[in-house]
Design a protein around this nucleic acid. Sequence first.
DNA 1: TTAAAAAGTGTTTTTTTTACACTTATATAA
DNA 2: TTATATAAGTGTAAAAAAAACACTTTTTAA
Lengths: 230, 230
Amino acid sequence: MPSNIYSNTDKILIAVDCIIFGFDKGALKILLIKRDFEPELGKWSLMGGFLKEEENLDEAAIRILYDLTGLRTIYMEQLYTFSKVDRDPVARTLSVAYYALIDIAMHDKELIQNHSAQWFSLDKAPDLIFDHNKMVEKAIARLKRRALSKPIGFELLPPKFTMRQLQKLYESILNKKLDKRNFINKINSFGILVRLDEKDTNASKKGAYLYTFDKVKYDEKVLEGFNFKI
Amino acid sequence: MPSNIYSNTDKILIAVDCIIFGFDKGALKILLIKRDFEPELGKWSLMGGFLKEEENLDEAAIRILYDLTGLRTIYMEQLYTFSKVDRDPVARTLSVAYYALIDIAMHDKELIQNHSAQWFSLDKAPDLIFDHNKMVEKAIARLKRRALSKPIGFELLPPKFTMRQLQKLYESILNKKLDKRNFINKINSFGILVRLDEKDTNASKKGAYLYTFDKVKYDEKVLEGFNFKI
DNA sequence: TTAAAAAGTGTTTTTTTTACACTTATATAA
DNA sequence: TTATATAAGTGTAAAAAAAACACTTTTTAA
C-alpha cells in the first residue's frame, strides 16, 4: 500500500435513511415521506438526509428523526450500509440505514404534515424510491430477530398498555398468531411488568388491566440474559 | 429540504476494514497486519483499504480479502459502519467493517508475509489502531450469535474434519466447554454431515472419523429453519 | 334478560435440553 | 509382550421449556 493512501482516493456522499416503526390500531406501521424535491419528486421514500462533516452517523440519524418526529429519546439502531454504485441516479451515494421504534402517539403531527409524511401499515405501504424497499425489508427482518431476543416492543407502546396490545404488537412483528395464555405466562415469568389498578375500556366492555414496564427489573433481566422466544 | 440537496454537502472517505477469522490448532484466530505506512506505522491493524468510485462495499471487501489471502469464495458479511468524527487522525473517514471466515489452511502464506500479516489467537492479539479493537469485539459478538443460529462453523474448517474439531471450533467461538455426547447428538440430528470411511490419526492413536458437510441437505435445512442452540 | 364481545385464568402433553460414565482402539513405553 | 496412556465413541434418564387446549367473567347494547 502506498504511503499517500489518503490522497487521490475517492470521496463519497453519505446519506442516512431512517425506517421509522410505529404501532397503532393493532398494526405495525412505518412512516414515509412524499418527496417534494428532485429526484423522484412525488414518490414515496424513507426520511433521510446527508451526513455532515462534524457529526457521526448516530448523531445524523438522531437529527433526521428529530426533524420529522420532534422526538429525541427513541430506540434507534444502525441497520446496514447500502452501496450499489448506481443506487442513486444523481450522484454516487452510500446510504447508512437506521431503524427507529417510536410510540406513535408521542410524535409531532404537525411536523410530519409539513414533511408530507404519512403512516402506512406494512402490507399497504407504497413502492419506494431507490433501494428503500430493500432497506425496509431488512429492517423488518432485524426487528423480528430483536423481538425474539429481547422485549423490544415496549418502545412502540404508550407508557400504559394492555396485555392484549402487547400481544397484538408481537403478533404483527412476528407475523403470526400467538396463544393468549402462553403469551401472558411467558411475559409474566420475566417479572418486568407492573399491573396497575386502572383499566382500559376502549377495546372491550369488560375493560382490560393496564400495565407499565418496570425499567429497573428489565435492566436486571438484561444482565442475566433474556430468553424471549414466544 | 432544499432542492439542491446534493450540492454543498460533505463528501467523505470510505474505508473498508476486514476482521478475518481462521481456526487452527483448536483456537479461533484473527489475521492482523503490521502497518508499514503512516499513520501508526509499525502498529497492528485490521486489513483495510478504500472504497473506489466504481465498486460497491461487498466488492471492495472481496478485493481487500483477495489481496491478503488469495481467496475469493469465502464467507463474508458486512458488520457495522464506524463513523466517529476523529476516528482517523489524518482525515475524516468512515469505515465499513466486514468479517470473513476462512479455512486457515487454504490461504496464500506468501501473500500474508508480503503484507507483514500474522495470525493471532483472540486472547493474545495485540492492541490495534484507531477503533479496530471495537470492530473486532463487535465481530466476535456477531460470530457468536451466528454460531447459534446456523452451523456457520464449516466455513472455518477444511473440507474433511473430525467431530472433535467441529466441537473445539464451537467451543472457541462460544467460549465455553460443551458436552461431547450432546454436541454430537445435536449435530447428527440435523443430518447435514456425512461420515467418511477415512480416519484422522493426527490427534489420537485410535483415530477419529472424518466428516464432510452435505451442502444439499444443509440448504434444505436452511429453508425449514435451523435451531442451532447447542 | 339475553346476546355479544373481549378479558382472564391453569393444567397436561410434548419437545428440547441437560446431565452423566463406561468401553474401544491403538501407539508407545516398560 | 504387556501395560499404560490417550482420545474416540456411544445412550438414557431427568429436568426444563414450549405448546396445546376451554371455560368463566364482566359489561354493554339490543
